[in-house]
């Protein structure tokens, strides 16, 4: 197998509010870390977006992208219900600004940002994002629970959701019913470590909804790279998980 390229869908830049053994304070630091790990590209959000706020988080993502002259990074902004008129683009303008600023996907942090992911709060925005095929990232912690994620998927069946940080100690009983019933949910692998789990998932559901993500700076890039490298799956499926699925999703987003 030659030239297995990795495109990290869940990478965070910045100095964690409560400290961390590792972090990338700025763009150069992050690029060095990606170089060390052999990661070609990464979707980047800010490490303090949940704790510090969507607006400052997006601000620092924009700065990171401006400093990334080699264009290895793609941005991930965080959105809020637009009735609040906070300093985040909304409506059709959101997509225009995303395109202009190299933002490829979005995230939501309803628990930390104290809003409720119901249609009442964000229906109009999510309908537009569904039309455009924009991938929306959330973690189990930030949506609140797997139950809350199920509710989100059922309320917004046309949106594409990436679920991240699914907990080391097993998520198959949560994720597999979703894979059985919808093609709009994507699994990020930073905390999916179960032995032979990747191959087993691919055998049952195919590789199209599984994406490599590191969870950096809390998790390393390398451990799941090795897991994917030696998963007993076809090289084509391996390529999809490592980078192909993310490339395709970003390409399909109509910004």
């Amino acid at each position: 197998m030659e030239d297995l390229a990795f495109f990290d869908v869940n990478c965070q830049i910045g100095m964690p509010m409560c400290g961390s053994l590792e972090y990338a304070a700025g763009t150069d630091d992050l690029l060095r870390e990606l170089d060390f790990s052999g990661i070609g590209r990464a979707v980047v959000s800010h490490v303090n977006t949940a704790s510090g706020g969507a607006v400052p988080g997006n601000h620092f993502v924009n700065r990171a992208l401006r400093e990334d002259t080699g264009k290895r990074l793609v941005g991930c902004w965080c959105i809020l219900p637009d009735c609040l008129n906070e300093n985040i683009p909304s409506g059709e303008n959101l997509c225009r600004e995303m395109l202009k600023n190299r933002i490829g996907m979005l995230e939501i942090c309803p628990v930390s940002h104290r809003w409720v992911p119901h249609r009442t709060a964000i229906g109009r925005q999510f309908d537009m994002l569904a039309e455009r095929g924009v991938l929306i990232k959330t973690s189990v912690q930030e949506i609140g629970s797997w139950n809350a994620f199920y509710n989100l998927v059922e309320r917004f069946p046309r949106n594409r959701f990436l679920i991240t940080n699914t907990n080391l100690w097993g998520c198959d009983r949560y994720i597999r019913p979703l894979f059985e019933t919808t093609d709009k949910v994507y699994l990020e692998l930073s905390e999916y470590w179960v032995a032979e789990g990747i191959a087993n998932l691919v055998k049952r559901y195919g590789a199209d909804h599984i994406l490599y993500g590191s969870g950096y700076p809390y998790w390393t890039h390398t451990s799941q790279m090795m897991n994917i490298k030696h998963a007993q799956i076809s090289d084509e499926d391996r390529r999809k998980i490592a980078c192909g699925n993310l490339d395709q999703l970003l390409k399909e987003a109509q910004l």
């Binding site: 100690w169 470590w193 390393t220 090795m226 897991n227």
Partner: peptide, 20 residues
């Protein structure tokens, strides 16, 4: 150690040989 079958041997080995 890995807690096998909780965690994959390759995942954990990747965390060791990828450490600084």
């Amino acid at each position: 150690g890995t807690d096998l079958p909780w965690f994959d041997e390759y995942q954990a080995v990747g965390g060791i040989v990828g450490a600084k």
